[in-house]
Amino acid sequence: MNIFRLAGDMTHLASVLVLLLKIHTIKSCAGISLKTQELYALVFATRYLDIFTNYISFYNTIMKLIFLGSSFSIVWYIKRHKIVHRSYDKDQDTFRHWFIVLPCLVLALLINERFTFKEVMWTFSLYLEAVAILPQLVLLQRTRNIDNLTGQYVFLLGAYRALYILNWIYRYFTEDHYIHWITWIAGLVQTLLYADFFYYYFQSWKNNAKLELPA
């Protein structure tokens, strides 16, 4: 494992911890898109189908369990926790799951490395992860006061993707393998979706102003 991959994983982990901190400690999910969280739960459920059959490392298994457990518990918190649920911006979080899930499923059935159930599900999870942030970005744009934790959560998620690209570039030059093109392209699309957010995030940071995305 290289430094970019480790930094990417740690940033991903930090994003989850920031979100759990907001939900568990402040008991608020204001500004957080349940749609995006449900899509992430689906991403991990379909990607880690081989978690118990294909052992890679202790680190790998633990991280998979953390991402599975945290994504499903975040969804549970927003939907079922009495106090947390009250802060959910239901009327603003209007993105339709099916507009995202269906095209990803069709694309995974058409473009994959091998036409087997596990392989198609793995490919589907990559396509879905690439666009799962969209409901969250739409919600951010509609939110007048984006609180610090929500801004940091999205920033950390974007940073995680950017670090993964550096990791792939590093692996390309240091390892002798064929490239998983699907992973690269889906990952690149995913990172580009954050470009606009990054721009306004750094602007607000530079000017010491509150983060706000223009409609």
């Binding site: 991959r5 994983d9 991903h12 890679i56 490392s57 790998n60 991280m63 998979k64 991402f67 490395e113 793995w122 993964y164 990791n167 692996r171 390892e175 002798d176 393998h177 064929y178 490239i179 998983h180 992973t183």
Partner: peptide, 10 residues
């Protein structure tokens, strides 16, 4: 001889 990269990422 190149082979497929292992799926060892998260």
């Amino acid at each position: 001889e190149k082979d497929q990269a292992p799926k060892d990422e998260l």
